[in-house]
């Protein structure tokens, strides 16, 4: 079995443990369990990062020696993006008030869902997009944006459910990177093809522009409507994630 698939399974299991410990510790009021959940999530992030680097690296011609280690046939294009997004979606700091300690589990749900989806895609029979066609700077950047967006999604989930304040920087960083990606792709299009919109790449470009517009709306939304803004962030994050895994 592929090394990456093993790492993915391990990461998925550790994230499931993080979600379970977080809920259990939260409802029982045991701080140690919540800390344990965070340590499990850290471990999952490390494992998934290694898996993502192996997977993406095997798609680069310069790293062909890795192909013998990584079974690229099992890893379709979208799986690579899902693994990277899951790795980036794990929050590295936990600032959760004791009275809503259980809500820390919500921070790990997006990462776990992404890792689980990647596992399901691997085992589900179907045509896989070769990783060498997927490993491009645009796809990698989209996956990074999607991963940070998934982290913001976790924060917003917690805010939706508990109404608690949240960390703003994942959302701001996601928006900043998505803006850079949108600007770069559009400028390259303008330079090469003379148009802002390219019909040849309309699927990818439509997804990037749509996600950027949604994040722009999220950034502008009045912050005093906490739950509405959280809902908007969740929608924008989901759109970015779907764009990152959608084949052209």
């Amino acid at each position: 079995m592929s090394v990456v698939v093993i790492l993915l399974g391990l990461g998925c299991g550790m994230l499931l443990a993080a979600v379970s410990f977080g809920l259990w510790g939260g409802f029982q009021g045991v701080w140690a369990l919540a800390r344990g959940a965070h340590i499990a999530a850290w471990g999952a992030a490390g494992v998934l990062v290694v898996g993502a680097l192996l997977g993406w690296g095997s798609g680069l011609p310069a790293l062909e020696s890795l192909i013998g280690v990584v079974d690229t046939g099992a890893l379709g294009g979208p799986v690579l993006s899902l693994i990277l997004m899951a790795a980036l979606a794990v929050p590295l700091k936990m600032n959760v008030p004791r009275k809503v300690l259980w809500s820390c589990a919500l921070l790990y749900v997006p990462a776990w869902a992404l890792a689980l989806t990647a596992l399901v895609r691997i085992v589900t029979p179907g045509a896989a997009i070769p990783s060498r066609d997927w490993v491009t700077p645009v796809r990698f950047s989209l996956a990074v944006c999607g991963g940070l967006g998934a982290r913001a999604l976790g924060q917003s989930l917690r805010r939706m459910v508990t109404g608690a304040s949240y960390v703003a920087w994942p959302g701001e960083l996601t928006y900043g990177l998505t803006t850079l990606l949108f600007g770069a792709v559009t400028l390259v299009n303008l330079w090469q093809r003379g148009r802002v919109w390219s019909s040849a790449d309309s699927v990818l470009q439509g997804g990037i522009v749509g996600a950027w517009l949604a994040w722009s709306a999220d950034w502008l939304a009045p912050r005093r409507y906490r739950r509405l803004v959280a809902l908007l962030t969740i929608a924008a994050s989901l759109l970015l994630i779907l764009t990152a895994v959608k084949p052209a």
Binding site: L213, A214, A217, A221, T243, K246
Partner: peptide, 23 residues
């Protein structure tokens, strides 16, 4: 800001549809 948010969301939905429905 509300009007701009609504306009941006409407455009986002329209543009995203072009990614999912072949034009």
């Amino acid at each position: 800001d509300a009007v701009l948010v609504v306009l941006l969301l409407a455009l986002a939905v329209s543009v995203t549809l072009t990614a999912w429905i072949p034009q």
